[in-house]
Amino acid sequence: MPTLLLNLRHVPEDEADEVRRLLQEQSIGFFETPPSRWGVSAGSIWLSDESQAVQALDALRYYQQQRRDSSRAAYEAARRDGSGATLWSELRARPLRLLAALLAAAALVALCALPYFLLRG
């Protein structure tokens, strides 16, 4: 019976490629389901043979620890040398995005407050 190894929702393409390569290097049989047309399913990587599940999960766990450690090191290095993204740099790079978010928040507050004002009196 197939076993779900990795749901691909919010998984970067480079990470998915590295997981595929890892499974091939370990000679673990797998197949993929594609994402659905309307975004209900993001696709998944499944193991063909349930008996390889422990080996695959151990390999995936080790890979994810290595990826986490390298990502944290890269983040710390960028923060130390000042090249990392900050709130201020993001606001300067995308001011219209900030304005749109503020307008959307104001619209939501207005919609939530509307029944109060309509029923008040």
Rank of each mutant, 00 (worst) to 15 (best):
residue 6 L to D: 00
residue 25 E to H: 10
residue 95 P to S: 09
residue 78 A to S: 14
residue 77 A to K: 14
residue 5 L to C: 10
residue 118 L to M: 13
residue 66 Q to W: 00
residue 48 S to A: 03
residue 115 P to Q: 05
residue 53 A to V: 05
residue 3 T to P: 04
residue 56 A to T: 02
residue 56 A to H: 01
residue 109 V to P: 03
residue 33 T to E: 12
residue 65 Q to W: 06
residue 77 A to I: 08
residue 65 Q to L: 15
residue 82 G to P: 06
residue 74 A to S: 10
residue 55 Q to H: 06
residue 15 E to S: 07
residue 33 T to W: 00
residue 109 V to G: 12
residue 2 P to I: 01
residue 36 S to T: 15
residue 118 L to Y: 04
residue 2 P to H: 02
residue 73 A to M: 07
residue 104 A to H: 02
residue 87 L to T: 14
residue 21 R to C: 08
residue 2 P to Q: 03
residue 80 R to I: 11
residue 80 R to A: 13
residue 89 S to D: 14
residue 119 L to S: 08
residue 20 R to A: 10
residue 109 V to N: 06
residue 37 R to A: 13
residue 13 E to C: 04
residue 91 L to S: 06
residue 12 P to N: 09
residue 27 S to A: 10
residue 17 D to A: 15
residue 118 L to G: 07
residue 81 D to W: 04
residue 93 A to H: 09
residue 17 D to Q: 12
residue 101 A to K: 14
residue 100 A to Y: 02
residue 86 T to R: 08
residue 47 L to V: 08
residue 120 R to K: 11
residue 40 V to N: 14
residue 83 S to P: 11
residue 108 L to V: 15
residue 27 S to H: 06
residue 85 A to Y: 12
residue 55 Q to R: 14
residue 10 H to I: 08
residue 76 E to Q: 13
residue 64 Q to P: 01
residue 91 L to A: 13
residue 96 L to I: 10
residue 102 L to G: 13
residue 33 T to S: 11
residue 50 E to D: 04
